[in-house]
Amino acid sequence: MSKGKEIKHILKLLLLGDGAVGKTSLILRFIENRFSEDYQMSLGVNFLTKTVKFIDIKNIQRTASLQVWDIAGQARHVSYSHLYLKGALGAFYVFDLTRRETLLHMQERWQSQVLKVSPQCMSILIGNKADLTKDRVLSASQSKKVQEAMHAIDYIETSAKTGENVNEAFQTMTTRILNLTPKKFL
C-alpha cells in the first residue's frame, strides 16, 4: 500500500462486568475525558462512539470508529442479551480491584455469554480503581491467573478517576483486533 493512504474501520467493543465496577466511568473517561464521583446505576445498554486515528508501521493512516457499548451489570440476566452482544469484536471484562467478588466467575458469568454470540471476540481483562491503593484486595498475579484462564490478550490496571491506562487499554484493543502495529497515535 502506498504511503499517505487512509483506511477506515468500524469496531464494536463491549464493556462488561458486575455493577459499580466503573464501566460507565471508563467509557466517559475515554470518550469525553471526564469523571464523576456520583454513582448512579446504568439502566439498560448504551453506546457511545469515538474515532481513534493512528499511523501503522507501514505509514498508513488508520481511522477506527469505535462503538463502545456499556453493558449494565444486571444486563447479563435479561432474556434478550444476545441482541446487544452479537457482532462484537472486542470485550473488556472489568472488575473492581477493591472488591474480590467482582473478579470471581468472570469467565462463566460474562465471557461465556459473549463468546456464544460473538465467538471471534477478543478479550482484555481490566482491573479498575487502581487509584484506591489502600483498599486494594487483589494482586496483579491473582488477576493474571484469571486472564490466562480466559485467554484474554492482556491484563491492564486502570483508573477511570485519574485516567491511568484508559486510553492505552482502548488503543491496545483496537490495534490487536486490526492485527496492526501502531507507530504513532494521532
Binding site: V45, F47, V78, Y80, L83, Y84
Partner: peptide, 14 residues
C-alpha cells in the same frame, strides 16, 4: 420501561 427503552434505542441507532 427506562431499561428497555434505553436498550431498544441503542439497538436502533447502532
Amino acid at each position: 420501561l427506562q431499561f428497555k427503552l434505553t436498550t431498544i434505542t441503542s439497538l436502533f441507532l447502532a
